[in-house]
Design a binder for these strands. Structure first.
Lengths: 196, 196
DNA sequence: CTTTGATTTGAACGCCTGTTCAGTTAAGAC
DNA sequence: GTCTTAACTGAACAGGCGTTCAAATCAAAG
């Protein structure tokens, strides 16, 4: 069995994912061809099919990996026994920090949902809902404890996430504000928005 | 001079725009072909070129029309002499009402910016900035008057707009909440978020 | 050094792309 | 009823699409 060690595949696979991530984020899934991805990696288009069954799976895998990273990182950062206010602060800072570090993945995850075939769409959507449920649970706990004044926890969840994810539309590393300052400003707005 | 009245072009032009709007919103600009648009209208692809110089202009015109509608509707609804709190309430209700009525235009305006060639991109971006400046002016006036507690008016502007526009991701006509209820919930969150 | 098989090439497949344009159709003007 | 011309068709253009696959390449195992 040759090429089990030093095989190119262990290097090529992540390079293909990186190229696809970059190009999908920049131009959109439909506007990027397999030949463009291959060229970016330094391969012929046919070689990509050693690593993905088709273009759709390449996209779906990028999105699935991102959402699973998100849930795993969140599981590590969260602590269920925190009081609602501290839990919310933790969520806000986590969300901003995680998303700001992965602008390409986030862009794709929000923009290319419509490019997913039904099965893949359902999978990704389920992962997203699991993440949203974490914030919703915090808001419900806080509302039940009388610490938050949220009229509709479900909508407050979506509103807060939309506001936080919006950071990615303007934040640039090395810009006017540091990550910590951004987290502080948004935490202030979220805290007041939920009436805490 | 034949066909000056009863000409098809006065009917065909808006039908082409409507078809392009629907298809671009549903599948994305890059994923929609001129033949698909033509088929939706009931024409051959070549006939589209009596109404648009090319596919790119068709997209750019849809986006420009939407942004100009937005600014015109806003100009009509706004009244500069309102106190900051009332002005903000007016902006929030206007934004939600306007955007909820035009889900396809809004979707395209936010998702297809990257599909625009540089000149078109700059045009649309300038229109968007003009709209954002209206909210920013309200927040600055309120902050100066001590009515609002916004640490960074520019970021608060983007945060509020992101939150409000997020309504379009979940709102469906005939759903659990009426437009008025949605406006009320979001106005509550925005009012508290800016410390009013 | 030969063998093995993972990896990649390069050409080909059928189909679709945006756009052009000579020719056809048909509505209104005279 | 003829003329004019806007509106549209249908075919063609050159090129790109996702995907397949026999053949070539080449690193490691024996």
């Amino acid at each position: 069995m040759a090429r089990t060690q030093g095989s190119h595949s262990e290097l090529t696979a992540p390079r293909i994912r990186a190229a696809a991530l970059k190009l999908f984020a920049r131009h959109g899934y439909a506007a990027v061809s397999m030949r463009q991805i291959a060229k970016d990696v330094g391969l012929q288009a046919g070689a990509l099919y050693n690593y993905t069954p088709d273009k759709q799976s390449l996209l779906a895998e990028l999105m699935r990996a991102h959402m699973e990273d998100l849930l795993a990182a969140r599981a590590e950062a969260a602590s269920a026994q925190l009081a609602p206010l501290e839990a919310l602060a933790g969520f806000v800072r986590f969300h901003i920090g995680f998303h700001i570090e992965r602008p390409e993945e986030v862009f794709i995850a929000y923009m290319e949902l419509r490019a997913l075939e039904p099965d893949n769409f359902a999978d990704i959507e389920a992962l997203r809902r699991r993440y949203e449920d974490e914030l919703e649970a915090i808001l419900r706990r806080g509302a039940a404890a009388g610490v938050f004044a949220v009229e509709d926890p479900k909508i407050a969840t979506l509103a807060v996430i939309a506001m936080l994810t919006g950071v990615n539309t303007w934040y640039r590393a090395g810009g006017r504000l540091s990550l910590e300052e951004v987290e502080e400003i948004y935490w202030g707005m979220v805290r007041r928005a939920v009436g805490a």
